[in-house]
């Protein structure tokens, strides 16, 4: 009703006066949000002057106008580097796997956990599964390497014991296993933590909906399908859109710590490349150029995802 009247007004009056009228009506909403827009402007947008470094041979300490300007040289260098494309391929491969499994499994886990009736068991399970989030990647990578070792690693012992393998297999030495190992380790470490958001969304659903469904004779599966899933759909979609935006920004720590010289072709990712060839060498300009590339791709992905979901599901983040 509210919306209809507003549309009518829009037609009649000029945009500015509409704005002013709305502004007066909504001054509280403006007051509650605009200061924080200013806030992010200062803390997030202002430092973007640093992007000019990508077009210079930046040397710290020299004034802005004293820097040597080199135009697009760093970008050209970047796009001519085979290693960059290798890193891009690996990044995309691992982030798609992450999206496919690392994103969906926590949702399934949250739903399964929600179906547990014993409150104590539920709480314990939830607490235990979120603990690995606090164990650093150094430690987790060490554990994974040891588990996959051919020298008494539990996975090989099991596979050989069950007769699936004749002799221990060096999973860590074989590049084609690497992406999978990273994905599974990530799920192992972060599943419980990532499930929290969905647990909270489920917790916010109206209990009356379940009561009504029960009265209608819906069993557990139907309740999950018709109430839980649609109920947390907005959260799922929003997290999905944000994750799509992050497709090429997946960090480098786990890949670096799980890799070894034999699988480097599959392990190097963009952020590690940026570190090794940018900041690591004191080449701030090159590092910044990579950063800009990342940001531009991310924002394009975000806008695409946002547009698509807005159109087909009426859910968006902006």
């Amino acid at each position: 009703m509210d919306l209809v009247t507003k549309k009518d007004i829009t037609k009649k009056k000029s945009r500015l006066s509409v704005f002013w009228k709305g502004f007066k009506n909504q001054k509280m909403l403006y007051l509650m949000s605009i200061p924080f827009v200013a806030w992010v402007f200062v803390f997030n947008y202002l430092p973007v002057w640093g992007w000019t470094m990508a077009f210079q041979n930046y040397i710290p300490g020299k004034a802005f106008w004293e820097q040597e300007w080199v135009g697009l040289q760093h970008f050209i260098q970047l796009f001519q580097d085979e290693r960059f494309f290798l890193a891009l391929r690996n990044t995309l491969a691992m982030s798609f796997l992450g999206l496919l499994f690392g994103f969906t499994i926590p949702i399934i886990f949250a739903i399964l956990l929600n179906e547990v009736r014993n409150s104590f068991f539920k709480r314990v399970t939830q607490t235990v599964t979120y603990l690995p989030h606090f164990v650093s990647w150094v430690v987790v990578a060490g554990i994974v390497t040891k588990m996959l070792s051919t020298d008494g690693g539990i996975i090989n012992d099991l596979l050989v014991g069950m007769g699936i393998l004749d002799q221990p297999y060096q999973f860590m030495a074989d590049g084609k296993w690497f992406w999978g190992i990273v994905t599974v380790s990530d799920i192992w470490k972060e599943m419980g933590w990532n499930a929290i958001i969905f647990l909270a969304a489920i917790a916010g659903l109206d209990p009356q909906l379940y009561e009504a469904a029960k009265v209608d004779g819906a069993n557990r599966f139907r309740q999950i399908w018709h109430i839980t899933l649609p109920g947390i759909r907005p959260t799922i979609l929003v997290v999905l859109i944000l994750n799509i935006g992050h497709l090429i920004q997946i960090g480098f720590e786990k890949q670096m710590l799980l890799s070894n010289p034999l699988v480097i072709e599959y392990a190097e990712v963009l952020e590690l490349y940026a570190l090794n060839y940018g900041i690591g060498l004191g080449q701030f300009s090159y590092g910044t150029a990579i950063g800009i590339f990342n940001s531009v791709v991310s924002i394009v992905l975000l806008l695409l995802a946002n547009g698509i979901f807005k159109r087909y599901s009426n859910q968006s983040v902006m």
Binding site: P47, W49, M53, L242, S298, L302
Partner: peptide, 17 residues
């Protein structure tokens, strides 16, 4: 407001700035 804020997730000015 939402666009201005959401975009901040995907870029950074870098360490020195």
């Amino acid at each position: 407001v939402s666009t201005t804020i959401v975009l901040t997730m995907y870029f950074s000015g870098g360490l020195i700035p």
